[in-house]
Design a protein around this nucleic acid. Structure first.
Length: 320
DNA sequence: AATCTATCCAACCGCTCAACT
DNA sequence: CAGTTGAGCGGTTGGATAGAT
């Protein structure tokens, strides 16, 4: 289960302690398989919580050899060992949800994580920092600025929707059949079951992302194939990667959220307002994106940049 | 093949807050 | 009411590794 070895202790793990572990016998750094097993078995018998007590019981037969702080135990359990923790790359749906919820709540990672079953706040935080903020840095804009929010709306979210659309089409046997019921069945029937949220379910076609002519023109000569075009994303959306529609429903609290209730099922079903992402109406004049940022997008080498999940890969965008 | 660089993510740290005494 | 403790949260670090040179 654990992918780390006992020999790979970090520098940090060797540094002196300043927190709640005054004992020099406490271990730090990567967890070993034995430690994982000890913790899992202990929690299986006694349940979660009381982390410090757990740490203090390290001398017990049951926890012999586990010399970790309660804090460390809690983190290891919540972020890695807990059975419902989902491993692997974030699906386009999950990315879409993160982008939307972050625009709503900011860096409230744990709150955002509550809406992504199986995902931890740590994972979401890492995603935001390594993927999203990276793009912001590259475009020389503040990741929390409205300008970047608009860029996300203009380019990123439409691309995600396209991916979702493509995924649901190519995996119709696993996702479409169930997800297509979301908007057509009584939500009270399906709300208890995890359902796939897919652009395929939308009652209208998602418009492809379009770039302003001056931007696309500059980008054309800059096309760059991203070698890991599918890295970080699943082309198939399985039922285990789905999210409960009732969790998505709360997105409507956000006034600019792309998720809106369908009139019939006001509280249970939501669709994405594609108009939010219609590039035709998005220009530097209509957006909070300063012209200079648009210029950055156009002139910088961001098209050839590794956009991780390939969401921004311009060869895909231009091919549409 | 060796070295360098960039990226990812597990783990740690410091802080806040609520519950308890 | 003040002090203490435990739990949780967001920010940061650095080792592992993949990719580039």
């Amino acid at each position: 289960m654990s992918s780390v070895s006992s020999s790979s202790l970090s520098k940090k793990s060797l540094s002196s302690s300043s927190d709640d572990d005054s004992s020099d016998k406490l271990r730090r750094g990567p967890w070993t398989l034995e430690e994982d097993n000890l913790l899992v078995h202990y929690i299986a018998r006694h349940g979660e919580g009381r982390w410090n007590l757990l740490a203090k019981c390290a001398g017990n037969q049951e926890l012999l050899g586990l010399r970790r702080t309660g804090k460390s135990c809690r983190l290891r359990w919540l972020n890695y060992l807990k059975p419902d923790v989902k491993r692997g790359n974030l699906t386009p749906q999950e990315q879409l949800l993160i982008l939307d919820l972050h625009s709503k709540w900011g860096n409230r990672w744990s709150k955002i994580a509550q809406h992504l079953p199986g995902r931890t706040d740590n994972e979401i935080k890492n995603y935001w920092r390594t993927r999203v903020q990276k793009q912001a840095r590259h475009l020389k804009v503040d990741a929390n600025s409205t300008a970047f929010q608009d860029i996300i709306k203009c380019f990123w979210i439409p691309r995600l929707l396209q991916k979702i659309e493509g995924s649901s089409t190519s995996c119709s046997s696993t996702s479409t059949s169930s997800s297509s019921t979301i908007l057509s069945q009584n939500p009270t029937v399906v709300s208890d079951q995890p359902v796939n949220y897919s652009a395929h379910d939308l009652p209208f076609p998602i418009p492809p992302p379009q770039l302003p002519q001056e931007v696309s023109g500059n980008l054309q000569g800059n096309l760059d194939h991203n070698s890991d075009s599918e890295h970080g994303s699943n082309s198939c959306i399985s039922s285990t990667e789905s999210m409960n529609i009732s969790q998505i429903s709360q997105l409507s609290e956000y006034p600019t959220s792309p998720f809106h209730p369908i009139s019939t099922f006001q509280k249970d079903c939501y669709y994405v307002d594609s108009g939010c992402y219609n590039m035709e109406s998005m220009t530097p004049a209509t957006l909070s994106v300063p012209a200079g940022v648009f210029q950055n997008v156009a002139e910088s080498n961001w098209v050839g940049y590794d956009f991780g999940d390939n969401i921004w890969s311009m060869d895909e965008l231009m091919a549409i």
